[in-house]
Structures are given as structure tokens and as C-alpha cells.
Simulated scan of single mutants.
Amino acid sequence: MDKVKLVGYFRELKHGLRDGPSLKEAVEKGNYAAEKTELLAYLKEGVLYAAAPGVGVDVLDSTGKLSGVAHALTDGKWMWPADLAYYVEFYNVSLPEDFLGDLRKRKWKMPSADSIDLLEIERSIFGEG
């Protein structure tokens, strides 16, 4: 299996990557047109890879508005935080074209949970141990 690819782990998020893309720079740069509904549904339907305690706070809104949870979701090839859908919906953040291209090829259909080997994903991230 190829190594699972990460998307949406913006560096400003508590659960983001230090060298991840900037959320602030991605705001209002998403070009999804008529695909936004399908994109949001796909992001929300991801298979749970890891549950995270607590809730996320919108890092772009000083009022403390909740952004969701930081659970890690996957489709077997990509992994993203569950609150990515929130930032796409409310801030129209841009996402990598190779991610969007894969979703288009799948016709926005999430693979069944049974077809996703979570242990294989773990090995692709952490190695054989």
C-alpha cells in the first residue's frame, strides 16, 4: 500500500502539522463551484481512523465558535481532520488538486468501511514497528 496522504492539517490548528499549509492563506481560495455539496458530503462521510477527545474551536473566529472535532477520517488513500468540512463550508478553504482529482475520479463516492484496511493505513504511517 502507498503511504496514506494527509490533507487539511493546517499549521494553525492544534491538531495541524507544523509544516502544513497555512489555513489563513487558504481562506476563500477554494474553487469548487457546483462540487461543493459533494465535497462536503465526502469529507463528512470519511471512515473514522482515530477519535480525538474534545472539540475544536474555530481558529479564524475570535468569538470561540466551535469547528467540530479533530477525529482523523480516511477514505483509505487520504486522511483528514473531521473539522476540515467546517473550514471548507464556512471559509471556502482551498484543498490540493490531487485530492480533489481523486474524489472526482471516485465520483464523490466514499468507499465502504469494509474495503478500507485501517491496519494497513497504520503501517503506512508508522511502519511495521
Rank of each mutant, 00 (worst) to 15 (best):
M1D: 14
M1F: 13
D2K: 15
V4C: 04
V4D: 00
V4P: 00
K5N: 10
R11A: 12
R11T: 11
E12H: 03
L13Y: 08
L13E: 12
L13T: 05
H15S: 13
H15V: 09
H15D: 07
G16N: 09
R18I: 14
R18C: 08
G20P: 08
G20N: 09
G20Q: 09
P21N: 12
L23W: 10
L23S: 06
L23G: 05
E25Y: 08
E25T: 09
E25V: 11
A26T: 05
K29I: 04
G30Q: 07
G30V: 08
Y32G: 06
Y32K: 03
A33N: 11
A33T: 06
A34C: 11
A34F: 11
E35G: 04
T37C: 08
L39E: 03
Y42N: 09
Y42K: 04
K44P: 00
E45P: 01
E45T: 08
G46K: 02
Y49V: 08
A50K: 15
A51P: 01
A51W: 04
V55L: 13
V55F: 12
V55H: 12
V55E: 15
G56C: 13
G56T: 14
V57F: 10
D58G: 09
V59K: 02
L60H: 06
L60G: 00
D61A: 03
T63M: 06
T63V: 07
T63D: 14
G64D: 01
K65S: 08
L66T: 12
S67G: 11
G68Q: 02
V69N: 15
A70I: 13
A70G: 15
A72Q: 10
A72S: 13
A72Y: 12
L73E: 00
T74R: 00
T74A: 00
D75R: 06
D75K: 06
D75H: 04
G76S: 03
G76W: 01
W78G: 07
M79L: 13
W80K: 01
W80D: 01
W80F: 02
P81G: 02
P81H: 03
P81V: 03
P81N: 05
D83K: 12
L84V: 07
A85C: 06
Y86V: 10
Y87S: 09
Y87T: 11
E89Q: 15
E89M: 05
E89T: 07
F90H: 15
Y91L: 08
Y91V: 08
Y91G: 10
N92W: 05
V93D: 01
S94Y: 09
S94F: 10
S94I: 11
L95E: 04
E97A: 14
E97L: 07
F99L: 09
F99W: 07
L100M: 07
G101F: 10
G101V: 02
D102F: 06
L103G: 01
L103Y: 00
L103P: 01
L103H: 01
K105W: 06
K105N: 13
R106H: 02
R106K: 12
W108R: 02
P111K: 00
P111V: 02
P111R: 00
P111Q: 02
A113Q: 13
A113P: 11
A113N: 04
D114K: 15
L118I: 11
L118H: 03
L119G: 14
L119D: 15
E120C: 09
I121M: 10
I121T: 07
E122Y: 14
R123Y: 11
S124P: 00
S124G: 02
S124E: 00
I125N: 07
F126H: 12
F126W: 13
F126L: 11
G127W: 03
E128Y: 14
G129E: 14
G129D: 14
